[in-house]
Design a protein around this nucleic acid. Structure first.
Length: 257
DNA sequence: ATGACTAATAGCATTAGA
C-alpha cells in the first residue's frame, strides 16, 4: 500500500498535473500541501470523479493541506496543529485511513533568519513534537508526512554552502527535526538511502532543475508499528520536469499489508 | 548578486514561497 505526499503549489494551477499523477501512480493515500485555496474553492469533485475521497483544510491565498484516499472516506481526527489557538495558518490535518493514522503537515518555511517567521517555525516544530509524542503514546500505527521545510543533513542538499544561511538548514531547524526522530520515528527515505543525494525540491529559479540543484525537505516519518512494514520509499522525480510542474516532486512510502 | 521563477490576490504590484 502506497502513501504519498505532494506539495503541489496551488491546487487549481496544478489540477491537470495532479489528476495525471494520481491516475498514473494510484497511491492509496495522497497528502497534499500548499493547496493555496479556500475551503469552498477546493475541487473535491474532480478527485471524486477519479475515485478519491478527500478532506481538506484550506486558507485564502497560501498554505492549505488535504488528504485524499482511494475508494474510502478519510476519518478526520484533527484539523489544525494543537497548542496555539492564535495560529490561523492551515498547515495540519490528521485522519484515520486504511487503519493508519495519517498526519499531513506543511511546516513553516521560516525565512528570513533571524526574525518572527523563523521563531514561528521553531515554535510550530515544538507543537508538532508534542503532537507526535501523543501519537506515540497511543501506539497507533502512524505516519507524519508532508513538507517539513527542513534539510536534515548536508547529504540532503546539492550544496550545503549555497544554502547555509537558509532557515531550512539552520542548526536549530535540524536539531528540532532530530528531536522528532529521537522518539522512535523512522525517516523512510533516509533509512533506505543512507548516503543521501535524494531530492524532493528544485527551485524554479536559476535553472535549478536542469542543474539538479535540489534538496530533500519532504519527509515521511513512520511510527515503530509502521516502520516494520516499510518495503520501499521514493520520489516521483520525473513529474518535476513536466509542463507546469510544482517546484516539489511527489514522494511516497510503500507499506506491506 | 538584496538577482533569477511561480501562484494568488488584487492590479496594472505585492506577498509568499524555499
Amino acid at each position: 500500500m502506497r502513501i504519498a505526499s505532494f506539495n503541489i503549489n496551488g491546487v487549481k494551477a496544478r489540477l491537470p498535473r495532479l489528476l495525471e499523477w494520481l491516475q498514473e501512480t494510484r497511491p492509496a493515500v495522497a497528502c497534499l500541501q500548499e493547496i493555496k485555496s479556500q475551503d469552498e474553492g477546493f475541487p473535491g469533485h474532480e478527485f471524486a470523479a477519479i475515485g478519491y475521497h478527500a478532506i481538506w483544510h484550506g486558507q485564502k491565498g497560501f498554505n492549505g493541506v488535504a488528504i485524499l484516499a482511494d475508494g474510502v472516506e478519510p476519518i478526520e481526527i484533527q484539523r489544525g496543529l494543537p497548542g496555539d489557538p492564535t495560529d490561523e495558518h492551515s498547515r495540519y490535518i490528521e485522519a484515520d485511513v486504511f487503519g493508519i493514522r495519517v498526519a499531513c503537515i506543511y511546516l513553516p518555511n521560516g525565512n528570513p533568519v533571524p526574525g518572527p517567521k523563523f521563531d514561528y517555525k521553531l515554535a510550530w516544530m515544538q507543537r508538532l513534537h508534542a503532537r507526535m509524542r501523543a501519537l506515540r503514546r497511543d501506539e497507533v500505527p502512524a505516519v507524519v508526512i508532508g513538507d517539513f521545510n527542513v534539510i536534515p543533513e548536508d547529504k540532503d542538499v546539492w550544496s550545503p554552502a549555497a544554502m547555509a544561511a537558509d532557515a531550512l538548514m539552520q542548526p536549530d531547524s535540524r536539531d528540532a527535526y532530530a528531536r522528532l526522530l529521537h522518539d522512535g520515528w523512522t525517516d523512510a527515505i533516509d533509512t533506505l538511502n543512507p548516503r543521501g543525494g535524494v531530492w524532493t525540491f528544485w527551485d524554479y529559479q536559476a535553472g535549478a532543475w536542469q542543474r539538479d540543484h535540489g534538496f530533500r525537505i519532504d519527509h515521511a516519518l513512520l511510527s515503530p508499528e509502521l516502520a516494520d512494514r516499510l518495503s520501499a520509499a521514493g520520489v516521483d522525480k520525473e513529474y518535476r520536469g513536466r509542463e507546469k510542474a510544482s517546484d516539489h516532486a511527489p514522494m511516497w512510502v510503500e507499506l506491506r499489508r
